[in-house]
Design a protein around this nucleic acid. Structure first.
Lengths: 298, 298
DNA sequence: AGCATGAACTTTATCCATAAAAAACAACTT
DNA sequence: AAGTTGTTTTTTATGGATAAAGTTCATGCT
């Protein structure tokens, strides 16, 4: 049966809004709520119905208003708000990066399905989606081959990344001075220096900033294939570093400094300087990844 | 139910071998046949059983040999030898390129399933696989958006293609003279000039040659992401030109000449000359595609 | 006319079932 | 011991069913 994670997530969000007082007085119309939560009206109605049943919302002659205070255990647990497909993703990435899954291992849809507690269909869809990451390969009628999260993989990934990033940085720097992206870049630079001040405790925030920065660079000259490739990178890094936290603070601190130098270079519009800064940053990112790969490898 | 296309294709192939006299005398063992046909022994046995039933093969005391002559209508029809997934692909590509499918159209899994006569599952798997081509986009819980086979698409595709090809051509030219790829390149050049002589009738053969040529260039410095991207190109071109045959002979003739110039440039190892030849060729490929796109667009 | 709610309908996400194909096991032959 | 064939088990490809979520239609209220 389809999971009701959309409903549960919407419910939790609405409960949050009630608690924050964002929904004081008469509640907005179903359509208005629908728009705010990005779900269908059907789901909004289901949420409202349950809120009323639990007296979190009252309804008198068609007028709805906040009811009793929201309690911590009114919320659905987080696990129930993620769709199956996402669970499969998480399980699989853990299976791949955490366990001793060696290059050359063959992947068995049925076995994974049993292990993750989902239907084979879900596994298969995930694997198809995942195959564009270049880590697995399908052999028809037979199964999938895990090619390994290896040094080769990292090298090939970074070769493309450098190519794309140099191209995008170059095009970024040649935008007219009137482009709004310059403003965004300046803002990002400030965010970087702010984070640097609080690095001791906030170093986790870097990955969000990293993402915003590299996506901003691409924004000046959009290309869907480059964007897609950046999705690959984001995905890989997300999971890889989630389970690989050595030196995180130090790594991020260094990366912030590199970003700042890179931003300065962009603002200078000097092609050679941009190239240097960009390459320096990516080279260090690559070294970091490679080092942690070797740790993974024994 | 799963289709038995693997069996039927294997059957047809075996029938062909019988007809060609490749299986004269005592038939090879099941294992040997298995290896030659790249299917499992289970399938081989099924084929043999049917061949015997139809007396195309005789069996006396465990010895199998060719039986009566193979007739044209011993073969299974071609349509029955392609798996469902492939049918879906063909139908979808036709739907996309042939019909007046406009950018922004939303794609309905259920409707396509009905239209193509398959289960929704198959459609969904195809769409997931196809999504890496950058022509469709998934919106969760809602459906897929067709972004259109547009001019933008072609431009973005070619921007990447040029980047990759320049990189690969450059690295190819810097291989040691002892690399076996130089020999392959020379052979390909001959194949090109041969084809040119027979261009009047054999111009269809160009696409195979084109593929071999560009894949050879990539072989000198393998990168899975570049290979994958070349798969995208191959796929797109395959279907696009399958339905768009204006000027095919002329186009291919021009492309052969460009290839030869490109090969000469590679053999000269002169970076600047390589760059020129490569760019010239890709520019003309792009123009061709763009022109046919405009035809498609009204 | 435009927006709100109610109800009906359609589509997606998900599970389950099963024949075809592959793989593993067993027994036999040379 | 290595290669055959026969048999059994496992896995993949594909169809089908259904609750959840999205969308459309109908009705009523300013």
């Amino acid at each position: 049966m389809r999971t009701d994670t959309v409903y549960k997530k919407a419910f939790n969000r609405t409960a949050n809004m009630l608690r924050d007082g964002q929904l004081a007085g008469e509640l907005p119309s179903e359509n208005e709520l629908r728009r705010r939560m990005c779900v269908s009206r059907t789901t909004v109605r289901k949420v409202l119905q349950e809120l009323i049943r639990r007296q979190l919302v009252t309804e008198h002659s068609g007028i709805r208003a906040a009811g009793r205070a929201v309690d911590d255990n009114d919320y659905y647990p987080d696990a129930e708000t993620t769709p199956r497909a996402k669970h499969v993703e998480q399980h699989f990435m853990e299976w791949m990066l955490r366990r001793d899954t060696r290059p050359g291992t063959s992947i068995n849809e049925l076995e994974l399905a049993r292990q993750f507690g989902v239907a084979t269909n879900g596994i298969r869809e995930f694997l198809i989606r995942f195959s564009r990451f270049g880590l697995i390969e399908k052999r028809p009628n037979t199964g999938w081959l895990f090619k390994g999260f290896t040094e080769d993989f990292a090298l090939e990934l970074f070769e493309i990344r450098v190519m794309f990033e140099l191209r995008s940085a170059h095009l970024f720097s040649r935008q007219p001075g009137t482009s709004p992206l310059w403003g965004k870049l300046a803002a990002l630079k400030i965010a970087h220096t702010e984070l640097l001040k609080r690095i001791e405790i906030r170093y986790h925030d870097f990955s969000g900033l990293d993402n915003r920065f590299h996506r901003l660079i691409n924004e000046a000259s959009p290309n869907r294939f480059i964007d897609d490739f950046y999705d690959v990178i984001t995905f890989i890094f997300h999971y890889h570093y989630q389970w690989n936290k050595q030196d995180e603070k130090q790594r991020n601190q260094a990366a912030i400094l590199e970003h700042v130098a890179y931003i300065d270079a962009l603002e200078s519009r000097d092609p050679e300087r941009i190239k240097q800064a960009c390459q320096a940053h990516l080279a260090s990112a690559r070294t970091t990844l490679m080092r942690s790969l070797i740790g993974l490898d024994q």
